Measured scan of single mutants.
Amino acid sequence: MPSETPQAEVGPTGCPHRSGPHSAKGSLEKGSPEDKEAKEPLWIRPDAPSRCTWQLGRPASESPHHHTAPAKSPKILPDILKKIGDTPMVRINKIGKKFGLKCELLAKCEFFNAGGSVKDRISLRMIEDAERDGTLKPGDTIIEPTSGNTGIGLALAAAVRGYRCIIVMPEKMSSEKVDVLRALGAEIVRTPTNARFDSPESHVGVAWRLKNEIPNSHILDQYRNASNPLAHYDTTADEILQQCDGKLDMLVASVGTGGTITGIARKLKEKCPGCRIIGVDPEGSILAEPEELNQTEQTTYEVEGIGYDFIPTVLDRTVVDKWFKSNDEEAFTFARMLIAQEGLLCGGSAGSTVAVAVKAAQELQEGQRCVVILPDSVRNYMTKFLSDRWMLQKGFLKEEDLTEKKPWWWHLRVQELGLSAPLTVLPTITCGHTIEILREKGFDQAPVVDEAGVILGMVTLGNMLSSLLAGKVQPSDQVGKVIYKQFKQIRLTDTLGRLSHILEMDHFALVV
């Protein structure tokens, strides 16, 4: 994948999101292997301009796509893939009243899908469409860049269908997702969380590099694949309309690839034109409109599966009536509230959605109805927002919020430890010299600072030695090549209790 991002070429006709291997024109390309080798690009942008032909009021008969309808489940399912879809609609009884809503608040519980998330729908649909058009064949390999849930859905379907599955996901995604993927037989590649989507090191860039190296491999490409919004247009939206008897006044959905909100909203605009569509985008993402909503100094966020630093091709923002931004604290607070007060075992993005819903639905009156999409299960986040310690460490809970008995030293300040200034190293000294210094002084790690004293990161003896043994660096290389740029900081005025929580999850903390 090139470091400079080429513009994806656009073909003359058809839909841009065809499933299957992508040609340089962004659509299915038939021909000899030699032709494909000559024409197939190194990668295709996940934010390529959409060429979708959908228009409100256009006859369904003019759609270029294969459409399906929700099917009634048999008493005995032939395999677990038949437990994807037909998820329950559940009334939220307490939270709406707590925040003064007059309307009825309903939750579409997508964590009841077989793999635990709304992404099971698009995973199965992308595979079925690729099999139907002859792209996927027995023994082929599926590769997908994902925040985890699409990966789980694909790995689940691949396990049943017999495909090899490789999932490329950023490091910030939970260990629970990784464990589930491994249990399903998927191979996992992790990428830096802070890598831009168009960087060769991003999950998108690495996935395309693997595709170019592995024979008979395919990126189904949830960011561009029409099967993504079509899955929701054909099934999720129809289920909502049936469950609500066609009567709903507002739908609120958090947005990642945009397939969920695009597919549902398009069908609702056709069948229930008075329904307002509300999009939820986390602070630090750029999906919301108008652009002024996205202006923030924050560039990272903890909530998973929603928000991006690019506009995915499948996201149709014209069908969203209003956007709201959400933050991590309210997302996790509301997710825990949904679990504790409503018994809905949902993930953090569901918290984002409901946090926005109780604001947006203030305009609705008694007798009206708001539906929220709860995308995934708490299963993926047992060591994250479900953990009091994690919430404390991230600053989303305060010590006084917890009532468990603490040891005698818990409320003492870090400054009472009488710490001395640490050994520091410059980023320009060599790895070999740094190892000598650390061994001589008896230290395992040291902060790396520039000549102005600005902290650049941390270097550890173990990481340097393993990097040297693996051949990633040489003793003569500058130590700046092996620094940890993500590390926890703590102030002298913070409590030892807070430091204790940090050290339970990290090997060190830097006192500043």
Rank of each mutant, 00 (worst) to 15 (best):
193 T>N: 13
112 F>G: 09
22 H>D: 09
158 A>N: 02
158 A>G: 06
265 A>S: 13
115 G>S: 08
2 P>N: 13
57 G>M: 07
240 I>C: 00
146 T>A: 04
211 K>R: 13
85 G>H: 11
133 D>S: 05
218 H>I: 12
12 P>W: 08
100 G>W: 07
123 S>Q: 07
224 R>N: 09
275 C>N: 02
48 A>Q: 09
124 L>W: 09
59 P>L: 15
186 A>D: 06
243 Q>L: 13
97 K>W: 03
256 G>H: 00
147 S>H: 04
214 I>K: 02
115 G>K: 07
67 H>S: 15
174 S>I: 00
259 G>K: 04
253 A>R: 03
65 H>T: 01
61 S>M: 04
173 M>I: 10
100 G>A: 09
75 K>H: 04
70 P>V: 03
129 D>K: 08
121 R>G: 01
247 K>Y: 06
182 R>F: 07
126 M>I: 11
162 G>D: 15
241 L>S: 04
57 G>L: 03
181 L>M: 07
178 V>I: 02
22 H>N: 14
263 G>F: 01
108 K>Y: 08
270 E>V: 12
255 V>C: 12
57 G>S: 12
17 H>Q: 13
170 P>L: 00
265 A>P: 07
254 S>E: 02
145 P>S: 04
27 S>T: 15
73 S>H: 11
194 N>P: 08
4 E>V: 11
106 L>R: 08
176 E>C: 02
229 P>G: 05
138 P>S: 14
92 I>T: 09
94 K>T: 12
251 L>F: 06
88 P>R: 05
53 T>Q: 06
80 I>A: 06
126 M>T: 07
150 T>E: 02
109 C>R: 06
77 L>D: 07
222 Q>A: 00
107 A>Y: 02
72 K>D: 10
127 I>D: 05
85 G>D: 07
56 L>M: 12
206 V>M: 14
38 A>G: 12
66 H>D: 10
29 E>Q: 15
91 R>P: 08
193 T>E: 10
202 S>K: 07
120 D>F: 05
92 I>P: 04
160 V>G: 08
32 S>Q: 11
251 L>E: 05
274 G>I: 11
59 P>N: 10
195 A>L: 03
253 A>G: 11
222 Q>H: 02
31 G>P: 09
231 A>E: 02
51 R>W: 06
140 D>L: 02
29 E>P: 13
